[in-house]
Amino acid sequence: MTVRLVERARDGDEDAFTELVDLHGDRCYAIAYRILRDTERAQDAVQQAFLLCWRELPKLRDPERFGVWLHRLLVNACYEEYRRYQRWSGRIRALPAEGPAGPDSTVSVADRDLLDRAFGQLTPEHRAVFVLHHHVGMPLATIADVVDVPLGTVKSRLFHATRSLRAAIGADRDIDVPEVRPA
């Protein structure tokens, strides 16, 4: 179904593109929010990714690759949004997250704060790998394709991100996690 929609959208069918947005919008937004931890920035990143998607679709030769390609556009849009945010908007107030997946009782307020801080110390490249693997459930080889780095780099980033978050909540107290500054 998606392949047919992609082909139609690639041929300039706006209705097909709207259906693609309906099909993939929620997932993209969920990913973008988890990478950026900011609803407004996530919305902007999703918007940028889909507009690029529409503009560049005629260049997508293999519709079967649409999913990986869209995720690549999205991750790159998140990188861009993150770096702009870091450089220019240190004072922007992040709005509280909305939606059905609100605070989970499994996570204490203290843990949530620690995890937020630790995640904030990760680069967007580390965040993307972590989110794509643990939130989306994407295989590491596919992640390597999406973020366009070798598989070993994906593994390294995932290991570091996971270890940082575990250390933040005291699960790996004896591990000295080197501080990672955002790029």
């Binding site: 706006e14 309906d22 919008g25 969920a30 989970d104 643990h134 939130h135 575990r166």
Partner: peptide
Amino acid sequence: LVIGSWLEEGPTHLPDSTRRAITTSA
């Protein structure tokens, strides 16, 4: 489990306004 639960917190539905903005802008 704590990290996984923390990761799942947050919005999952793209706001309709953003959805409309995308298709209108396209």
